[in-house]
Design a protein around this nucleic acid. Sequence first.
DNA 1: GTCTATATCCAGATAGAC
DNA 2: GTCTATCTGGATATAGAC
Lengths: 198, 198
Amino acid sequence: MDANTDIKRTRSKPATEQVLGAALNLFTEQGYFNTSIPDIVKASSVSTGSIYHYFRDKEGIARNLYDSLVERMETSFSEIEARHDSAHDRCRAAIELLFELTEQEPAVMRFMLFSRHREFMPDQKPVCSSRPFVQMREMVASGMQRGEVREMTPIIAASAVFGGALRLIQLRLDGILDKPLPEYLDEIWQCAWRSVTP
Amino acid sequence: MDANTDIKRTRSKPATEQVLGAALNLFTEQGYFNTSIPDIVKASSVSTGSIYHYFRDKEGIARNLYDSLVERMETSFSEIEARHDSAHDRCRAAIELLFELTEQEPAVMRFMLFSRHREFMPDQKPVCSSRPFVQMREMVASGMQRGEVREMTPIIAASAVFGGALRLIQLRLDGILDKPLPEYLDEIWQCAWRSVTP
DNA sequence: GTCTATATCCAGATAGAC
DNA sequence: GTCTATCTGGATATAGAC
């Protein structure tokens, strides 16, 4: 049974996971700057010393979190691109994914989409320039080449397709919408697609 | 000439204005939490003592700023409602206003739309519930009653109409778009309106 | 690798002269 | 009403035993 593992922590996730999970929740509930290291110590049951053993500093925690979430999003979008050919199907699937993720892991969405990252990670690019957002714009742009989407400024088309859905995500996270987002998928998608169709 | 006024400050705006202006710039450039009172002292040329004479605390500065900007927005939207009858004209005018404001006073838009207010003003409602946002949704809802906008969940319609434009504002503020927003008005408006038209 | 105890710093806020 | 000087708390980060 290897009795010398998992002596301390009951929930036997590795300490780094423990810290990252606690930090994600605290950062999204109270904000990065309202979250102190002692807060993270309490919420994660990992000591100050260990936290600084694994992470350079507080910013390092946020960085690690952000990078891994962006990467995860990127992978999901790549899968969507592989699974579908048309811009129609790809964009719809992307929105569906975002809606589901919002319901299942609101903290992830909050942190990815609606934190002011540059305020606490000064040398990050704005989220809008991150790979997943570029992928979303590419989905639309390729649809324009195929003639599915009418000729127009590509970035405007992308904003038209995804703008409404992103707005709904924000409203949902802010508690304005009380039904789960997937219930609205058909309706918002119809709007989105009509707006750019030839 | 009343020589005993305006002795100290060269730019002879009242001290409170001086402080609010400096704070708005600093808050939007670096974020609220990265801005210290000493920073505001330097940028405003108003002393710590005076700042605390006029404002309860640092949060009070943000509060004052936020309230006055929301009120200003509210007034502008009311004027639009008075000037136009149709949802089509009202919503278009609202977007036009937002686009112009973004170009002329980017800091105002940044602070109003894209600060995480609740992180530093804990007892504020989310922006999305503020009067101006409600007004925007009302514009769309009344269009639905008049039959200009097709029957659908009202908040979805509003998100479809304004989502793209709000997205463009964010892209512009993040430096992704390099042409002034008004140049894109016709194009995004066409998308927005098509998306909800019967 | 994990912990406790502690050093250091600087923010927010106040006191009180002018 | 405006200023300078100063207090105080708590945050980040480190030291060093185990």
